[in-house]
């Protein structure tokens, strides 16, 4: 008989170690503060004449139980400075994709788009 919910406990340990404060602004109205695990890695986009645009793929994980309403596509995530780690603020992102992360539906992974100024 298992006495531990290992995935759940592992996620909590990981979030205690790596998550940072976030604020979600829902498209339907209202905000929710919480924490999330932020990660970004490089993404090359093949473009005209085999040019390559250098971009990032940026994700954010949350523990579903920490959010009364799980954010959805179109909602905005603001990532302020992290007072514990000293990491600077990262600005605002828009959620463009939502994926359940694990079989137990404990974690949700969001794909983020940086909120930018239009150019031109």
């Amino acid at each position: 008989m298992a006495v531990h919910n290992l995935p759940n406990e592992l996620f909590i340990i990981a979030f205690d170690e790596w998550a940072r404060p976030i604020t979600v602004t829902y498209q339907s109205g209202g905000t929710q503060s919480g924490r999330g695990y932020f990660s970004t890695y490089d993404a090359e986009i093949i473009s005209e004449a085999e040019t390559v645009y250098s971009d990032q793929t940026t994700i954010l994980d949350i523990l579903n139980e920490e959010f009364p309403k799980v954010p959805d596509t179109g909602d905005t995530v603001d990532i302020p400075a992290d007072p514990i780690s000293g990491n600077p603020a990262l600005g605002s992102y828009q959620i463009t994709d939502v994926d359940p992360y694990d079989a137990n539906q404990l974690v949700t992974k969001f794909t983020l788009r940086k909120v930018d100024t239009n150019k031109p």
Binding site: S47, T58, D97, R113
Partner: peptide, 14 residues
């Protein structure tokens, strides 16, 4: 509009 999976961070259009 971005990568094939539309999972890139910047809202580029080409």
């Amino acid at each position: 509009f971005g990568s094939v999976g539309v999972n890139n961070e910047t809202a580029i259009a080409e």
